[in-house]
Amino acid sequence: MNLKQIEYALAVAETGSFTLAAQRCHVVQSALSHQIARLEETLGARLFERSSRRVSLTPAGEAFVVSGQAALEAARRIGDDVAAACGEVRGRLSIGEISSLTELDLVDLLAGFHHEYPQVDIRWLINKSEVLMADVRERRLDVAFIGVWPGEPVEGVTSRLLAREELVALLPAGHPLACQSRLCLADLEDQPLVDFPAGTGARRQTDEAFTAAGVRHRVQFEVGSVMLVEKFVQRGLALGLVAAPIARGFKGVVALPVSDAPVRHVYAIWSNSPSPAAKAFLHVLERCLDARANTY
């Protein structure tokens, strides 16, 4: 078994096609198929079920993907680890964040990191918390910034709590409830709401909060971005629930505290065995957090 064979097999697993895998690996398909056949012979197990239309993983193939990804990642990190031991930080840094992150200006943080470590190739994306957690656990991301709810486990990663954020209700300026000083979830019963899609972590927790309060709620609009929550409320189409720091940046809406609304915890999470680039970024993050704490 060699690293090329592992790389070829993982490419087939990810693309679901020997043809696409060969194109990704810049090798002719016959050579890729031959190397995978040799790999299967070495392992004594078939990794793929092949048909005229599709390629799928066998149970042995699913087990191989987990170990193969870890082995390939470890091999790729050898040069970076050696360079770091000699005082040079390089390699790749993959960062993910939720769209509603308010605790940090991540772009400014990455700019400072890039100035200090110019040889690190930075990748950045936005996604949902549950996706980001899975990506960090499976080492597709080095570091992520997520928002979860009290009692929701953050497992398989190293984490640091950054903030505890209360949710507030967003209302159009002319709404009858906008003159109140505080609301409860019962006040929102049967009001049209804008929220994240059903099944997401953010939506699940608001659903559970209404259920625990014994209050019916009607989500009329499902959106994928917190900025769209602002627009729907501004136009008088719905009411929303967002973290208080997010609401402070919205215009043309009224934000009111909700006595029994859920609370969001914002975490930084990273792999239990961070790369040299990730360790350097976490050091920059710690400096930033310490500097901010000293200004309060």
Score class of each variant (00 low, 15 high):
residue 165 E to D: 09
residue 166 E to G: 14
residue 167 L to G: 00
residue 168 V to N: 06
residue 168 V to P: 03
residue 169 A to D: 09
residue 169 A to E: 03
residue 169 A to M: 06
residue 170 L to K: 10
residue 172 P to A: 11
residue 174 G to V: 04
residue 175 H to N: 05
residue 175 H to L: 07
residue 176 P to L: 06
residue 177 L to T: 01
residue 177 L to K: 02
residue 179 C to L: 05
residue 180 Q to H: 12
residue 181 S to P: 08
residue 181 S to I: 08
residue 182 R to D: 04
residue 182 R to H: 06
residue 182 R to L: 12
residue 185 L to P: 10
residue 189 E to P: 00
residue 190 D to C: 09
residue 190 D to M: 15
residue 191 Q to G: 03
residue 191 Q to D: 05
residue 191 Q to F: 07
residue 192 P to T: 10
residue 194 V to W: 06
residue 195 D to F: 02
residue 198 A to W: 01
residue 199 G to E: 01
residue 200 T to R: 05
residue 201 G to F: 02
residue 201 G to W: 04
residue 201 G to L: 15
residue 202 A to H: 11
residue 202 A to W: 01
residue 204 R to C: 07
residue 204 R to I: 08
residue 205 Q to F: 11
residue 205 Q to V: 02
residue 205 Q to K: 09
residue 206 T to M: 15
residue 206 T to Q: 14
residue 206 T to A: 07
residue 206 T to Y: 07
residue 208 E to R: 14
residue 209 A to L: 08
residue 209 A to C: 09
residue 209 A to Y: 08
residue 209 A to W: 06
residue 210 F to W: 06
residue 211 T to L: 14
residue 211 T to P: 01
residue 213 A to P: 09
residue 213 A to S: 13
residue 215 V to L: 09
residue 215 V to K: 03
residue 216 R to E: 13
residue 216 R to P: 02
residue 216 R to Q: 07
residue 217 H to D: 09
residue 218 R to G: 00
residue 219 V to I: 14
residue 219 V to Y: 04
residue 219 V to K: 12
residue 221 F to W: 06
residue 222 E to R: 07
residue 223 V to R: 00
residue 227 M to Y: 09
residue 227 M to G: 05
residue 230 E to D: 15
residue 230 E to T: 04
residue 234 Q to K: 08
residue 234 Q to C: 04
residue 236 G to C: 13
residue 236 G to V: 04
residue 237 L to D: 13
residue 237 L to E: 15
residue 238 A to R: 11
residue 240 G to I: 11
residue 243 A to N: 05
residue 244 A to I: 04
residue 244 A to Y: 01
residue 246 I to S: 14
residue 247 A to H: 10
residue 248 R to A: 06
residue 249 G to C: 05
residue 250 F to G: 03
residue 250 F to P: 00
residue 250 F to C: 14
residue 251 K to T: 15
residue 252 G to D: 13
residue 253 V to F: 02
residue 253 V to M: 07
residue 254 V to G: 14
residue 254 V to F: 03
residue 255 A to R: 07
residue 256 L to H: 01
residue 256 L to D: 02
residue 257 P to T: 09
residue 257 P to F: 05
residue 258 V to W: 05
residue 260 D to W: 04
residue 262 P to S: 13
residue 263 V to D: 01
residue 263 V to K: 00
residue 265 H to R: 13
residue 265 H to D: 09
residue 265 H to Y: 10
residue 265 H to M: 11
residue 266 V to N: 05
residue 267 Y to L: 10
residue 269 I to L: 04
residue 270 W to V: 02
residue 271 S to P: 00
residue 272 N to E: 15
residue 276 P to G: 12
residue 277 A to H: 04
residue 278 A to H: 10
residue 279 K to Q: 15
residue 279 K to C: 15
residue 279 K to H: 11
residue 280 A to M: 11
residue 281 F to V: 12
residue 281 F to P: 05
residue 282 L to G: 06
residue 282 L to D: 04
residue 284 V to L: 10
residue 286 E to H: 10
residue 288 C to Y: 14
residue 288 C to W: 09
residue 289 L to D: 01
residue 290 D to Q: 14
residue 290 D to P: 00
residue 291 A to K: 12
residue 291 A to S: 12
residue 291 A to G: 07
residue 292 R to S: 08
residue 292 R to T: 01
residue 292 R to H: 08
residue 293 A to R: 14
